[in-house]
Simulated assay, not measured.
Amino acid sequence: MTHHDSVRLRLQAIEAQLREHQHWQDLPPDASVFESTQPFCMDTLEPLEWLQWVLIPRMHQLLDSEQPLPQSFAVMPYYEIALEASHPFRAIILPELEQLDALFAGDDD
């Protein structure tokens, strides 16, 4: 399995978790939210919205066009802070994001 294949599988697993736990939205947000200059669009999108509307589509675009993927990449640290300890989805999504991050740290385990 190629690195691109592994990344695509991780993205699909994250999407599946978002869908299964009703964090997937059917309608996109207003286009203006994507004009944010803040990391993770933190001033315009909720953390889980950013996964759906920014990270997943952008990574799929890179994969589909066979573009180089980021060399250094980590989103889990943001989600450890952004999702409160009491957030019911936190324990589900953090391991998924950790596995995605590991693919960009050279650790495919």
Rank of each mutant, 00 (worst) to 15 (best):
T2E: 15
H3Y: 11
H3V: 13
H3T: 14
D5Y: 14
V7N: 08
L9K: 15
R10C: 10
L11S: 10
Q12T: 15
A13D: 13
I14M: 04
E15N: 09
Q17L: 12
Q17A: 15
L18A: 04
L18E: 01
R19L: 13
E20Y: 12
E20M: 14
H21D: 06
H21I: 09
H23R: 14
Q25I: 13
Q25L: 15
D30F: 11
D30M: 12
S32N: 10
V33L: 02
V33T: 12
F34K: 13
E35T: 12
S36W: 04
Q38M: 14
P39N: 08
P39G: 04
P39I: 06
M42E: 11
D43Y: 09
D43F: 09
D43W: 10
D43E: 11
T44E: 08
T44I: 09
L45A: 12
L45S: 09
E46V: 05
P47S: 01
P47E: 01
L48K: 00
L51H: 00
Q52E: 11
W53L: 05
L55V: 06
L55D: 00
I56P: 00
I56K: 01
I56V: 07
P57A: 05
H60L: 13
H60S: 06
L62P: 03
L62M: 13
S65T: 15
E66N: 15
Q67L: 15
P68W: 05
L69D: 08
P70N: 07
Q71S: 12
F73R: 00
A74E: 06
P77R: 02
P77V: 03
E80P: 00
E80L: 02
E80H: 03
I81H: 00
L83A: 00
E84T: 08
A85V: 12
H87Q: 04
F89H: 03
F89N: 01
F89C: 02
R90M: 02
R90L: 04
A91M: 10
A91G: 12
I93R: 01
P95I: 05
P95A: 08
P95H: 06
E96N: 08
E96L: 10
E96A: 11
E96F: 05
E96D: 12
L97H: 03
E98D: 09
E98Q: 11
Q99H: 10
D101V: 06
D101T: 07
A102M: 07
F104H: 08
A105C: 04
A105L: 11
D107H: 11
D108P: 07
D109I: 13
